[in-house]
Amino acid sequence: MPRLTRRQLPALVAAGLAAPALASAQAYPSRPITIIVPFAAGGPTDTVARLLGEAMGRDLGQSVVVENVGGAGGTLGAQRTAQARPDGYTLLVHHIGMSTIPTLYRRLAYDPINGFETVGMITEVPMTIVAKRNIAANNLAELVALVRRERDKINLANAGVGAASHLCGLLFQQAMNVPLTTVPYRGTGPAMNDLVAGTVDLMCDQTTNTTEHIRAGTIKAFAVTTNSRVASLPDVPTAIEAGMPGFEVSVWHGLYAPRGTNPELVTRLSRSLQVALRDPGLIRRFADLGTEPVPQEKATPAAHRAFWTADVARWRPVIQAAGQFAD
Rank of each mutant, 00 (worst) to 15 (best):
R50N: 14
R149T: 11
A23F: 03
P126Y: 06
R149G: 15
Q174C: 02
M203N: 14
L170F: 02
Q174R: 15
S63L: 15
P29Q: 04
Q296D: 08
A41D: 15
G290S: 10
R50Q: 12
N262E: 07
T291W: 01
D59A: 11
T261C: 11
F286P: 09
N193P: 02
A78Q: 08
A84S: 15
N134T: 15
P301H: 01
A306F: 12
G281Y: 01
A49Y: 00
D311N: 09
N209L: 11
R133W: 13
M203T: 04
Y110C: 06
P317F: 02
L156N: 04
I96C: 03
I36G: 01
V161K: 00
G260H: 00
Q8I: 00
P293K: 00
Y110V: 08
A303L: 01
L269F: 01
R271Q: 10
A159P: 13
P32R: 13
T211Y: 12
A231R: 13
Q320A: 15
G254E: 00
D327K: 14
T225W: 06
T208R: 00
V65P: 10
Q274G: 02
H95C: 14
E117N: 15
L140D: 01
A84D: 11
R58Y: 12
P44F: 02
N262P: 05
T103C: 02
T100D: 05
I101N: 08
F172Y: 15
A164P: 08
V224P: 04
A276H: 01
Q62K: 12
C168P: 04
E212W: 04
L12H: 06
A157H: 12
G243M: 01
V66F: 05
F39M: 10
K298Q: 14
G74S: 04
V249C: 08
I101H: 07
T225N: 05
D46Q: 11
R151P: 03
F39V: 10
R151S: 15
T291I: 06
A55C: 02
S232K: 05
R151L: 08
Q206E: 15
Q8M: 00
Q79C: 01
P237A: 00
A40T: 10
V119Y: 01
A41F: 06
Q62I: 13
G61S: 07
V130D: 13
T45K: 03
D46F: 06
F325I: 15
I35G: 03
G16N: 10
N209C: 12
Y89I: 04
L51F: 12
A216W: 11
A306H: 07
A49C: 07
P10H: 07
M244Q: 04
V312W: 14
T207P: 08
T267I: 10
L22D: 03
P301E: 09
T210K: 03
A242R: 11
A21P: 05
V224A: 06
A49R: 04
F247E: 00
L277Q: 08
G16R: 09
V66G: 06
D201V: 08
R80K: 11
A131G: 13
P2K: 13
T5Q: 03
N139W: 09
S24K: 10
